[in-house]
Write a protein that binds this DNA or RNA. Structure first.
Lengths: 119, 119
DNA sequence: TAACTAGTTAGAGTATAGTCTAAGTCAAGC
DNA sequence: GCTTGACTTAGACTATACTCTAACTAGTTA
């Protein structure tokens, strides 16, 4: 049998951009599952974990609080497709609202700048 | 002389959407100036204060931390137009990055949803 | 074998941004 | 003149999300 991608916490940290502290913290608050450990008790992560962590980061960066992300990943792990779509639909609406807000803030900021530089 | 708009903290709270606690908190951390007080020691706010608070809210909602907002409002009060434009330019760039990121997250989310609903 | 590196744990500490409480003052209406 | 309601203060408390420390272990390298 050939080896599947297996990595320790440092590599997952590098790949995901999250610190080792944060990864362990996410495990502590049960946002991430406890991974398998090797004979020394060190965490072993695979490609699937990278995928999950990156998706969590995506949700987090778009403003979803960790508790909500937890609900989402739970539904995901439970294969509850209905719940997942429902949550993503809501998330999508929020993103679109955010998009509008930011557009608005850009306008305001540009107006302020124009006024400032014109004066 | 006719009366200029004068309001107490409750009305400023209503007009701005910030809680009374938050307004006093912003004063405490020196984000907002101490307003004038009436004979009973109650804060009096004017139209200019509403404007400032709304602008602070705008900056905050677009992700600027309070400490940064403080720097900005300081430059604004100092009439340091150069500093203000500089800060707003940086802010604008961040907003545009945010806009791109959100666009990206919307795409990802829509893709996930399509996959989920198609399957 | 001794040092070095990377990992482990529980739990303490930090940063940011509020949020609320207790105890009090003051003006208006009944 | 007393209750009611809106205000005042200092300071304690909460929530969210990390971030780090101390004390330890296990494997590798000179």
């Amino acid at each position: 049998m050939d080896k599947v991608t297996v990595m320790k916490i440092s590599q997952l940290s590098q790949k995901s951009g999250l610190s080792k502290f944060t990864i362990r913290y996410y495990e502590k608050i049960k946002l991430l599952d406890k991974p398998q450990k090797d004979q020394s008790g060190h965490r072993n992560y695979g490609a699937k974990d990278v995928e999950i962590v990156n998706w969590v980061t995506c949700l987090k960066k778009s403003g979803m609080p960790l508790e909500k992300i937890k609900t989402y990943t739970k539904a995901y792990k439970d294969n509850d497709a209905n719940k997942v779509s429902e949550l993503l639909d809501i998330h999508l609406m929020k993103l679109k609202k955010q998009q509008k807000d930011i557009e608005h803030y850009i306008e305001i900021t540009e107006k302020k700048l124009k006024k400032l530089k014109g004066a």
